[in-house]
Write a protein that binds this DNA or RNA. Sequence first.
DNA 1: TATTAAGTTCTACCAGGATAGAATAAGTTA
DNA 2: TAACTTATTCTATCCTGGTAGAACTTAATA
Lengths: 119, 119
Amino acid sequence: MIIKLFDSELKVMEVLWEYGDTTAKRIAEILKEQVGWSKTTTYTVIKKCIEKGAIERKDPNYICRPLITKEQVQEFETSELINKMYDGAADQLVASLLDSRKLSSQEIERLKKLINDLE
Amino acid sequence: MIIKLFDSELKVMEVLWEYGDTTAKRIAEILKEQVGWSKTTTYTVIKKCIEKGAIERKDPNYICRPLITKEQVQEFETSELINKMYDGAADQLVASLLDSRKLSSQEIERLKKLINDLE
DNA sequence: TATTAAGTTCTACCAGGATAGAATAAGTTA
DNA sequence: TAACTTATTCTATCCTGGTAGAACTTAATA
């Protein structure tokens, strides 16, 4: 399933991913605290997420449950970046990362292991 | 230098990166052809790029010259993604790429080489 | 120099995402 | 059931990026 989430929607999803299934009320409290959102804002955005199929809310307790994982969104956003900035070539992105020294030596070690252990 | 380029600005920059230094007129022609932009739109966006320091235009021929490279923008956009979606950890992004099978086996081979040859 | 054409800027409109106040619905308790 | 609280939606505003028409300026040419 491919859904483009806006930044505001992402904020709501992140609460769910971090805190697990919970009520709209609770999400509102958390976002009030974290980013100062009014209760209404949170409810509006939750509604959008439900309409988009990113959240479902079933009786009896009206618990909000994410229908997409953080990994799915990561993948989607990453694909967008690759298409927009790297001509669709994922390896160019990695090459650029290695190149730009954005990775610490520990990270590089970890990746080296990852990639060599592949398949 | 850190500049956030909007999508429209990126279009102009991409023309410069691809075609090399050239006149506003030429850029307008290309973007007219490529994406249907009116001449005015192109000029407006070029102006924004100049104000932002992404393009310079010097006498006598009013040639537009990019002041930032595609690589810089790639790096910037990639950083944004990493911060937004991967808690600032670049290696998580790479791990996710390996995981999601976005990379062909050729690409993986190439990366394996790249990473093992590092340092 | 007058006329025309090309280059550039000024200004404005439009769409969409972010945000929230007021209104309404639903649930609770006396 | 009335009074009150809490949950939810309706509607609207604001802001910003994308886009371009009209006006203006500069250059070319008759």
